[in-house]
Each structure stands twice: as C-alpha cells, then as structure tokens.
Design a binder for these strands. Structure first.
Length: 737
DNA sequence: GCGTATCGCGTTTTT
DNA sequence: CGCGATACGC
C-alpha cells in the first residue's frame, strides 16, 4: 500500500495509530471516544486531520468501520476524508460510510422510501431545473412577463426552499424581504404553492426535499430511526457552521440513542446563510446534547504570521463571533499587499504580472488561486490569462450540467428514469421544429396524465405541422426503451438523434459546445445504471472542461464560496471594490456581516502570499466609467497589517497611456454609502420589549397585538386585518405603538 | 396564435 | 452568455 500523504506515513494499520504529532487540543478531540463533542476550530487549524485521526483512533479501539458515519459539507471533502481514512485502515476492512448530507439522504431514501409509501421512486432536480419550474409556472399561471421589478428566479428559489430550512413562515419571509415590492408579493406566494405541488406530483425532488424527507422519516418511524442509530454508533460532522435547521435535526435524531456525536465548525466561516445555514446551530449544540465536551482548536497550521494578523483584523470588526485567538508558529515575513488598479484591466494586469513572477520563482500553478465574489468578476482576467497562454481552471459559476445543451441531452435520459418528469418533457418538446412553449405545455400536460407517457406520445394526435417530428421523437424513445440499459449506449442513441437539432439550435457556437457533449459521454461510460448517473451528476455537477491540459496542473480561478476548505501558497482576492464586495444588494446588518466573513474565508486560504486588489474605475452598463472606492472592509484594516503597492512601481513599460499618480484620493474613506447601507435597523425590537397584548405595527400586515410568546426569537401576532402571523424578531420590522 | 430571428442589457453566492 | 423584448411571417 502506498501512502501518499506525509502526515499519514506513520500510520499503516489500525492497531498502531501514532498520535504524537497532534497538539493538546487536537489530541483531546481525537481521543474523546464516547459522548458528544463540539470542536470550535479556527481557519487552518487541522479540522480534517483531527476528524480523520479520530476515525483511526476509533478503529484502533475496536469500533467496526461500518458503524462510523462521516457527514461533510462538500462531496469532494467527503471523498478526500474517506480516502484518507482508507489509508489508515487496512485495505481489507470494509469502508467507513460517509458523504454529504444530501448524498446520504438520497441513498437512505431510496432504501427506506417504502416506509413513506413511495411506490415509484423519485428523480432529483438541481437548482437550474428548479428555475425551469419557476419559468414554466410563471408562464402557465399567466404572470406579467418582463416586469423588471419581479425578483429574479434564483432569489425566488432561495426563498421557497429557504423557507423550509429556516422554519419561518414563508409568508413572513417574503413580506419582510420584498416589502418594497408589495404588488408582487402575492404573486410569489401563489408561485410557491404551485411549486411544491408541481414537484411532488411528478416525482421530482430537490436538495431540500431530500433532507426534509429524511428528517420526517427519522421522526415518524421509530423503526427506521432504530435501524439507523444501531448501524451508526459514531456520527461525525464537518463544517457544522454550514448546517441548517433540518440538518441539525437529522444529527440530533441520529445521535439521540447514544450521543456519540462530534461536530467541527468555525462560526467565523459561516457563509451560507442565504441557503438556510445558521451558525447558531453551534451555539445550540451543547443544549441539544447534554454533557457536551467543548474543544477549541486555535493554532493555525496554514498561514504565516503577517497573513494571520491581517485575517484576524478582518474578523475583529465582526459584530458577533465566538472568541478565538489564532496563532501560528509558521515563519514568513511577506506582508499582504493591497493594490488599487486604475481600472479592471489594470487590476488584471497586476495579477497576471505577479502570477508570472511567482511561477518564475518556482511555485506550482495549482498552488496559485485568484478568488472573487461573483463568477463574472474574473472575465477580464480570463481573457488576459488566455492571451498569455496561461492555463487555468475556473470553479464556481455555471456548472457543466447547467449549460443549455447539456440540459437538453439530460432531459431525454431523465425521462427514461422518470417518465412523469414534466420539466424534461417540456424541454425535449421545445427542441422540435414547429413546437413552441404553448404547444409543448399542452402536449406535456396530456402525456403525464396518461398511464404510460411513452405510449401516449405514440398515440398523440399531433397537428399536421408537427406530426412528423412527434413521430420521430416517439420512435427515438421506442429505440431507447428497447436498447440494452448501458448508460453510455443510451447516451450514444440520444446524441445521434440530438446532433442535427443541436447544430441548428446553437448554430453560432456549436463546435465549442460539442466538447461538452463528448465529455458527457465519457462520464457516462463510468456508470452502471442511468439512475446512479443522474443522481450523481445532479448532487455534484462535474466542473466545466478546464482550459487546456490536466486540471491538477493549473492556476485556480474560483468564487470564494467554491474555494471553501482549500488552501494555496499564493492567493489573490480581486474585485474588492465598493458595490462589488460586499455585493451591492447586501443590506447592512446580518448580510453585511456575512460578506465580511466571506472576505475572511477568502484571505484565510493563503499560506504564504496574499494580495488584495480592486479597480478604482468600473464600467457601468451604459459604457460610462464610474469611480469607485475600495471595499469598506479594506478601509477598516490597520495600515501596519499590509503593504500598499503604488501602481507606478509595478508597470514600468508596456502599458501605453498609463498615468500612475500613486495617489488614491477617496480610496481610504467611504465617501458615499449606498442608501441601503444607511438603513441600519433602527431600534430592533427584542423579546423583552414585548409582552402579550402589546400593540405593534408591521409595514405590511398593519396593526395588531401580541398573542403568544414562545420565549424564542419568534412571537405570534394577531393582526387586525391579516390574522395570526408568527414573526421572527431578527427579521421582522416591527414597531411598538 | 405560434414560431423564429435578432438585438440589447445585466449578471450573487450553492449543497 | 443567457434571457427577455420586439418584430415579422406563417
């Protein structure tokens, strides 16, 4: 057996786990075998290492591998961890179980779905499909199209699924977040009700449905709960700050019998609240599990002291955090550098030059990363890197399976697994000549109402214009159903049919997209069943084809969210300008704080060199240049913690009409805050300000009186005109009258 | 009423 | 680059 990771060199067998390399806190966490443990860990403190060593230690104590369950946030982290664990234990041992919450929920529901009375199974849809549903519903329910004020689809999705996670009444959430869009709020509510029905009627489930159903099953069926907790005697959860209420409930239910639960998290790295994550889960953990042992990991094993000082400075300004003081023994003198480029082009050039320098100094491309808030912020840099022949791998943004042409092909395949999949029927029909949205919807509705949609398609009395293409489609499905059920083979048949449509549809750029289709084929070749393929690619979409050679050898361009948990020798955080970071629509308060943590996550990825850059001018939509200041988070930092680069020193040649004055007037202070920032929650009401009977006023529901107080942050209010509503005081803009 | 072609504008973050 | 609006033709 070859051991590839140096820190496992000393551990070959389960009977000999050498824990001498661990620090005191890690040792304590690793060797606490029984009972609940909460590990509060700083960035770069060796969380994964601690978890893996604990697995090793458990096995050493004679715990069978199959009774250990590892839950992590990303599938890649899960795979990495299992692989490492696999290195620790003998190859002959059966493996430890692990994966993402969603992945495990999927496996679990497919096995025990019968307890829920499901006969025909389900298909998982991703967020792109979910957007498709919103589209369909919007048009079929006749909502005004093109109204600019209507929140975008992604936001609606986040609201609809987020409402389940936050366990807050959807209505309140919508009214709170979109109070400025009063005339559309009812539309959104109508939409959300149809959305739920639409999914369940057609055997479609999204990420959140998987979790909700897992939780419900554990709650409702003592038999299943017993099965699970007998099997998994030891539960471990990584990135606990990213769990939502449902996930925390699942952990509670799984661990209720034995209490052998260990969770690891860093509240300063909580960046997923838009999706329902709540780092208060960490604070609550000791209350949920009695006798919780709390261990803090404060030593940083990643970054040099100057970088650590800067990142500590970033988070120091946070309004709320578990106090941790990170320290490191790693030597290094390079101060983080801050650079304000003249414009986006100049910012990109700065990054390019420095990347080239580091490459020259012998740093591997894969150990260099450029991070940004939104996927499109790197466009300029991508072009520049391309023109210089530097290869890169982009993470975040659109996924391979979200591209239009990929969804086309997947729709055919999805139908083979779930013939009631409304969305896929619609998509497939839309590809055909002479069939538009209206016709497609009509046919779809007819097909899914029949016992066998494929037979119904063959028998469908199509209008003259589309008779031929419908017959062609029916023929394709007949061929597919008769074919041997090998995913790669099915893919071939679909692609053969799709090719002419494809070339016509994406006439201008189909050769570029063709590469994706070929990649799809090779991915599918690795699967035994179509169901597995669809589940896998939906839960963990493959990355788009990297530009050039092997992925491992390239510079990484990534959204900060997608860089979570990773580390690089050199990190550039770009686009740190007013309006870009924090994101323009982030409101002062909770959202503002989350953006700050996001910057913290970005900066803490750096091991040796850290650069923070921003453009001082950006192009607006109408091709006007607008001067922008630096991100307020940068402005807050102490000067001693970074070195300011004067642009004139960096570019001595090759930039033509470049005027570097070195002066940054207006950069160091925030001159004009957008209106939204000033709207700091004026006098937020606390539970203690209210009692039963207090008269209150709400911007939407109007006046009412407090009816019931649970003791938590929620109160029930009986409104004069809207009846009883449960309001969350952190969100509701209530006034006492 | 429906399908197709074309143009211009704006882009959060994701398991 | 994708999406919505708009115009035109069947």
């Amino acid at each position: 057996m070859t051991i590839q990771r140096s820190f496992f060199d000393d551990i070959n067998t389960v009977s000999e786990v050498d824990l001498s390399g661990l620090n005191e806190a890690q040792y304590e966490a690793v060797t606490t075998v029984d009972g609940p443990v909460l590990v509060i860990a700083g960035a770069g403190s060796g969380k994964t290492r601690t978890l893996v060593y604990r697995v090793a230690h458990l096995l050493e104590q004679g715990v069978p591998p199959e009774s250990v369950l590892l839950l992590t946030f990303t599938r890649k982290a899960a795979q990495e961890m299992l692989w490492r664990a696999g290195q620790l234990i003998n190859d002959n041992c059966s493996r430890v179980t692990g994966g993402t919450f969603h992945g495990v929920a999927n496996t679990f529901l497919r096995r025990y779905g019968s307890y829920m009375g499901w006969e025909s199974g389900f298909t998982i849809i991703d967020r792109a499909d979910a957007e498709g549903i919103i589209n369909l519903l919007k048009s079929s329910l006749g909502f005004a199209k093109g109204n600019k004020k209507f929140p975008n689809k992604r936001t609606i999705i986040n609201m609809i699924s987020g409402s389940i996670n936050k366990a807050i009444d959807l209505e309140d959430l919508v009214y709170e977040q979109y109070s400025h869009l009063s005339e559309f709020v009812d539309d959104i509510l109508t939409l959300s009700r149809h959305y739920e029905n639409f999914k369940f009627d057609n055997g479609l489930m999204d990420y959140d449905d998987l979790l909700v159903n897992w939780k419900v099953l554990l709650e409702k069926s003592p038999e299943v709960r017993q099965l699970m907790s007998d099997r998994f005697q030891y539960i471990m959860v990584d990135e606990y700050q990213d769990t939502n209420h449902i996930q925390a409930e699942i952990v509670r239910l799984l661990g209720a019998e034995h209490g052998n639960v260990m969770v690891v998290g860093d509240d300063s790295q909580s960046i997923y609240s838009f999706r329902g994550a709540d780092f208060y889960n960490i604070m609550r953990f000791p209350k949920v599990f009695n006798n919780t042992k709390i261990v803090k990991l404060e030593e940083n094993y990643r970054s040099t002291q100057p970088i650590l000082s800067l990142t500590n400075d970033i988070i120091e300004n946070a309004s709320e955090k578990y106090s941790k003081t990170l320290f490191t023994a790693i030597e290094g003198k390079a101060l983080p550098k801050v650079y304000g480029g003249r414009d986006e082009q100049d910012e990109a050039s700065f990054i390019l030059k420095n990347i080239q320098q580091h490459l020259q100094d012998g740093i591997e491309p894969a150990h260099i990363a450029v991070l940004f808030r939104s996927a499109f912020h790197s466009y300029k840099l991508e072009l520049l890197l391309g023109s210089e022949g530097l290869e890169f791998e982009k993470r975040g943004g659109m996924k391979l399976t979200e591209a239009a042409h990929m969804k086309d092909v997947l729709s055919f395949l999805r139908l083979l697994v779930n013939s009631r999949d409304n969305l896929s029927w619609n998509r497939v029909l839309l590809l055909l000549d002479r069939i538009g949205p209206k016709t497609a919807q009509k046919i779809t509705a007819e097909l899914v109402s029949q016992a066998d949609p494929f037979v119904a398609l063959q028998d469908y009395a199509a209008p003259k214009a589309s008779q031929a293409v419908i017959a062609g489609l029916a023929e394709l499905f007949q061929k597919l159903r008769e074919a041997e059920e090998k995913p790669a083979l099915l893919c071939d048949i679909v692609l053969e049919y799709y090719q002419p449509l494809f070339e016509k549809l994406y006439n201008d750029d189909y050769p570029k997209r063709q590469k994706d289709l070929e990649q799809l084929k090779s991915i599918m070749a690795g699967y035994e069943t179509l169901q597995d393929f669809i589940d896998d690619t939906t839960l963990d979409p493959p990355d788009p084809v990297a530009k050039g050679g092997e992925a491992a050898e390239k510079i990484v361009l990534s959204t900060i969210h997608s860089a979570k948990g990773l580390e690089f020798d050199v990190v550039f955080v770009m686009g740190l300008a007013e309006g870009r970071f924090p994101h323009g629509s982030a409101e002062f308060g909770e959202q503002w704080e989350e953006e700050r943590r996001l910057l913290y996550v970005a900066a803490t990825r750096a091991k040796r060199f850290l650069y923070l850059t921003y453009p001082r001018q950006m192009m607006t939509a109408d091709r006007q240049f607008r001067r922008v200041g630096m991100s307020p988070y940068l402005a807050e930092l102490k000067n001693m913690n970074y070195e300011r680069i004067d642009s004139a020193n960096v570019f001595s040649r090759g930039h033509g009409s470049y005027y570097a004055t070195g002066k940054d007037a207006g950069d160091t202070t925030i001159k004009s805050r957008p209106a939204a920032l000033k709207r700091k929650k004026a006098g937020k009401i606390k539970t203690s300000d209210l009692s039963v009977g207090t008269r209150v006023k709400h911007p939407f529901f109007g006046e009412g009186s407090v009816k019931n107080m649970s003791g938590g942050p929620s109160v029930d209010v009986l409104f004069d005109r809207h009846g009883i509503k449960t309001l969350h005081l952190d969100y509701a803009r209530l006034e006492i009258i």
